[in-house]
Design a protein around this nucleic acid. Structure first.
Lengths: 200, 200
DNA sequence: ACATCATATGTACAATCGTACACATGATGC
DNA sequence: GCATCATGTGTACGATTGTACATATGATGT
């Protein structure tokens, strides 16, 4: 066990440094990327409303000034963060569906997508809803969501006709959102039932 | 045409009163209700993030102090506003479905619900998504959404079995949200097609 | 008539915010 | 080596916020 003095020193160095001493300059390439990730963490945990320069900087453990150096405004941070989130979501979508070789496999891919990927991480779900709200009032973010939706629809069209793809996309959206907001989320079996019913 | 002086006077009286003169006291029963409506207006137009005491007071044309008199906190305002919104939505749901006397009419009711009621007023849609986000971090609001979902499901169960009701509820959610976020919203015909396909 | 008190109004205050900006430092190209 | 400048760091400032609170007024019951 460490002496109390050492604990205090470690504590100060890690999080609550003595404000009188300047923190050592760090060589930190890719800090901008880390800040975007930190922004996503904050948005998921606290919401866009609580996402401030200072909070992101605290999570990323960088001084406040670093935010204004890497981003010209808070809007730019949010745009970068949501763009990364949408890209990440779309990639999962692409991968699942391009791995399916026939229609039956595609149906299974959709079920896995909803039950595992989308409902599995509550953080991603919250991020998506936060994005929807933010997009309602920010044209740049609206473009992000539309690109994302177009991409997921295209992925579905590898296996389904255009009309089915669009309807299925909506069903997925509904199943995920509805399930996530409910006290008793739908089980994978219920998801499977709903998808099969629609595609039967 | 009014003289400029009269215009100025009207302007001052209506919105930008001379701060030196105290505004006349108004007998205003039901002001609390009006404030909740004003809050809903602000949330729909500017978002929860921009919903402040001062902005609501401005929209309702009451002094700031009136907000803190009628509500102990901003959270209470939001809770009251979203509760009213959910109640209003649920009522529409109830009315449409209780008016249907057989299953065929119920299907038509669902289609009307989505295509007309839900997609018709973009304000209500925005309010719903704002509520979802707010509910993600506020237990009181989560209870509001859950009560709302339970009620709409019950309304559907007047005409459909429990499993179908739940799946249909999710589909409705997806169709509305998906359609609203898209550049080209689904047409009533497309909505009809999707619902019929699911319930066929 | 008049006292009471729920309601209405105006203002102050500390906290927090986005952003600007001055200064420090070391990686990099020459 | 060494100058340069991209990057890192600390701090200040005006604006806005939620909330508290002092004061004003008229509807209501007696």
């Amino acid at each position: 066990m460490l002496p109390a003095a050492d604990l205090m020193e470690a504590f100060n160095a890690a999080s609550a440094r003595d404000p009188r001493e300047r923190r050592p300059r760090r060589h930190d390439p890719g800090r901008r990327d880390r800040l975007i990730d930190a922004a996503l963490t904050v948005i998921a945990e606290r919401g866009v409303a609580a996402t401030t320069h200072r909070e992101i900087a605290r999570v990323a453990d960088v001084p406040l000034g670093s935010m204004t150096y890497h981003f010209t405004s808070l809007e730019e941070v949010l745009a970068a963060a949501f763009t990364r989130h949408a890209e990440s979501m779309a990639r999962v979508f692409d991968e699942r569906l391009s791995a399916a070789c026939d229609r039956e496999a595609a149906v299974e891919a959709v079920i896995t997508l909803v039950a595992d990927d989308l409902l599995g991480s509550s953080g991603d779900l919250v991020l998506s809803v936060e994005l929807y709200v933010a997009a309602a009032r920010n044209p740049a973010l609206r473009a992000v969501t539309q690109a994302w939706m177009a991409r997921s629809r295209t992925a579905l069209e590898r296996h389904f006709d255009a009309t089915t793809a669009r309807e299925l996309d909506a069903l997925i959206e509904g199943l995920v959102l509805h399930s996530a907001l409910s006290t008793d989320p739908m089980t994978p079996e219920q998801i499977r039932h709903a998808v099969h019913r629609f595609l039967r």
